[in-house]
């Protein structure tokens, strides 16, 4: 089956991201495919490369990136949710005249059309939120 994951967590330290990550791994382990992981709302904060994780805590962003590169995941971050929270890629930083970009490499900013596409193209769209 084809799955897509919608993440709508209120902070990246919450367990929700962890649940979504474990679920995504389990989907892949069972031979299903992931069409897209879509980060929406506050979840976009997990995609900043400025996050400094205390040494005794897990860096969820790195875990997503590791899984994404191993499984060629399409990880899309809602552009309007991201920009309003200060998560910018190079193009957006330039467009809005900001001094730097901070979107972690491996995530892509795009519109909600990517979520609609995920819903259409996937057998199951699972929401993880809090």
């Amino acid at each position: 089956m084809i799955f897509s994951i919608l993440i709508y967590a209120s902070s990246n330290s919450s367990q929700t991201e962890q649940s979504a990550l474990r679920f995504t791994r389990a989907v892949l382990q069972q031979g299903h495919s992931i069409h897209r992981v879509f980060f929406y709302g506050e979840s976009v904060n997990a995609c900043s490369n400025l996050i400094v994780t205390p040494r005794d805590e897990t860096n969820i962003t790195e875990q997503w990136l590791t899984l994404a590169s191993a499984a060629k995941l399409d990880m899309v971050v809602c552009i309007s949710a991201a920009v309003r929270r200060g998560i910018l890629d190079g193009a957006e930083a330039k467009r809005h005249n900001k001094s730097s970009a901070n979107l972690s490499e491996g995530f892509q900013l795009s519109g909600l059309g990517q979520l609609a596409d995920a819903i259409i193209m996937s057998d199951r769209t699972i929401t993880f939120g809090n």
Partner: peptide, 19 residues
């Protein structure tokens, strides 16, 4: 919170894709 507005945005995007 922003959930109502975020949900409305999803509605418009889905409609644009003829869902």
């Amino acid at each position: 919170n922003s959930s109502n507005s975020d949900t409305l945005d999803i509605a418009l995007a889905c409609s644009a894709f003829e869902l």
